[in-house]
């Protein structure tokens, strides 16, 4: 009986993934709200939240719990969700745009480019908006560099070429990043810079940063959603997409803008959080197929789930603040190998 129902769910992979993904996200959200150094039961979390929302004066006030929930945990959880969703969506879009299932924000060097931009702004002590802009510029330079070099190598290159170019550009920017760290060694900023680059959701207290990321996410994901169907045609190559009536030039600009914005705004706030942009779209495509109009929202959902999960692990495993980037890499690498096993040589 149960297995039959499970089979039915298997026949509707999009629905099942959306359902279980949303349920998982809600459960993890509530768990994450309650768990931490200051433990709160689920009933208290719900009680305080309802009290806050409805403004029920008869419910006893609990200032400490309120501060922990709404000033510390909620922004952090929102940040984890926004960053995971943004990175996974950007990964899905890059993979579609470059017709290459192996590219991702980190593999293309966009993350390290954005990291260098943001590091410069942090070193110079600029405002958070400036950090965003520098990160965006850095990411854009990296992706354009990768595209330009790959293109200059000739039209009929294998999928591996772009990845190799990405690795080169990525390590080049990593070197610039180290240079910036070296230059700021004499200042107080170094420790901040190093911790931030390892990737962390711990700075969520700066609520305006979360707001900026939210705005960038709406802009970026919105752009990707509306150009979704056209992006599908690109998987047959630029010429065929053009022959089918798609304005390929405009599409490329929009998608590069949106994905780079999503990556850069995440990096600017949380540093380098690897693997999300590669494995999440892979996993989702493996389950529901390559149609971008379905792939994008589900990648966002599963990406959010993935980083929220990683953040919970960070807080469960070690006392203090282990950078979440370490956890995503430790989960990500073996998970990716598993996906490669399951999908064999066929790219989904």
């Amino acid at each position: 009986m149960v297995s039959e129902r499970f089979k039915n769910l298997k026949a509707y992979p999009v629905f099942s993934l959306a359902l279980f993904g949303s349920l998982g996200l809600i459960i993890l959200f509530l768990f994450s709200m309650g768990h931490g150094a200051y433990h709160l039961d689920l009933s208290r979390v719900l009680g305080i939240t309802l009290n806050k929302l409805l403004g029920n004066p008869t419910f006893p006030q609990d200032i400490n719990a309120e501060v922990v929930l709404f000033k510390l945990r909620l922004p952090r959880i929102i940040l984890a969700i926004l960053v995971g969703g943004a990175l996974a969506s950007a990964g899905a879009a890059y993979q579609c745009l470059f017709r290459n299932p192996m590219v991702a924000p980190d593999i293309l060097g966009v993350s390290s480019g954005a990291g260098v931009g943001a590091s410069l702004a942090i070193m110079w002590g600029l405002s958070s908006i400036a950090i965003e802009l520098f990160a965006f510029a850095g990411g854009l330079i990296a992706v354009l560099l990768v595209m330009g070099v790959t293109r200059s190598l000739g039209p009929n290159r294998s999928l591996v070429t772009m990845i190799l170019v990405g690795v080169v550009v990525s390590s080049l920017f990593a070197a610039f990043g180290s240079l910036i760290k070296y230059l700021s060694a004499s200042t107080d900023n170094l420790a901040n810079l190093v911790l931030w680059l390892m990737g962390s959701f711990a700075h969520a207290g700066d609520i305006s940063g979360v707001g900026v990321l939210f705005f960038c996410s709406v802009l970026g994901v919105g752009t990707l959603v509306i150009s979704g169907w056209s992006l599908n045609t690109l998987s047959f190559g630029e010429e065929e997409a053009l022959a089918m009536g798609v304005d390929v030039f405009r599409l490329r600009i929009l998608v590069i803008f949106a994905s780079t914005l999503l990556t850069a705004s995440s990096v600017a706030l949380c540093g380098l959080i690897g693997w999300v942009g590669l494995i999440v779209p892979h996993l989702v495509r493996f389950l529901v197929g390559p149609n971008f109009t379905v792939l994008l929202p589900l990648s966002y959902l599963i990406g959010a789930l993935f980083t929220l999960c990683a953040d919970i692990l960070v807080r469960l495993l070690l006392p203090g603040e282990m950078p979440v980037g370490i956890v995503t890499s430790i989960i990500g690498a073996p998970l990716f190998i598993y996906i490669l096993w399951r999908s064999h040589s066929a790219w989904h």
Binding site: R99, N100, W229, N232, F236, A241, A243, G245
Partner: peptide
Amino acid sequence: YVPQRESSVFSFTVQDVVLMGRSAYFGF
């Protein structure tokens, strides 16, 4: 245009592939 094509990177369903031919009608 009907190209010579060995395969595609991503495995779309036949229905989706044919539907892409409508891109010129339903707009960007």
